[in-house]
């Protein structure tokens, strides 16, 4: 269980326009590449002072590859990060205003309070 790493994925992909497009188009390739080459980067270190211990669980990796935002919520990923990135990827397909945002909420209608804990 690595809520921090899920959040790190969402955060670092969301802020890079090229990664947003790669995650939309080829999620399996992007998630695999990210876990291999980016998961252990300390964000302000450029010369090899990386971490050595961060990796996804199978459940987390599967959820990311499937663009399964409902599962990410269940796993405790930060809802703001997930929503922001998924809007970036899929709002463009709307046929009316807020269509994606409303459907995103509707897919989560089975969640009751308390929601999954997002503390990292």
């Amino acid at each position: 269980m690595s809520k921090y790493l899920l959040n790190k994925f969402l955060y670092t992909v969301d802020r890079d326009p090229d990664l947003v497009e790669r995650y939309r188009a080829t999620p399996a390739e992007l998630v695999t590449w990210w876990e291999d080459s980016r998961a252990n980067m300390v964000l302000n270190c450029l010369t090899g002072e990386a971490s050595t211990w961060l990796r996804f669980t199978d459940e987390e990796r599967t959820a990311l590859i499937a663009h399964d935002h409902v599962k990410l919520f269940e796993l405790g990923a930060h809802p703001f990060l997930t929503l922001t990135l998924f809007i970036a990827m899929f709002e463009r397909d709307n046929t009316e205003p807020l269509e994606y945002q409303k459907a995103y909420g509707a897919r989560m209608a089975h969640f009751n309070l308390p929601y999954p804990d997002i503390a990292t």
């Binding site: 809802p79 807020l98 909420g105 969640f111």
Partner: peptide
């Protein structure tokens, strides 16, 4: 306010 949950964008 709800963001990224079932009650958003009501």
């Amino acid at each position: 306010l709800e963001l990224g949950g079932p009650r958003q964008f009501g």
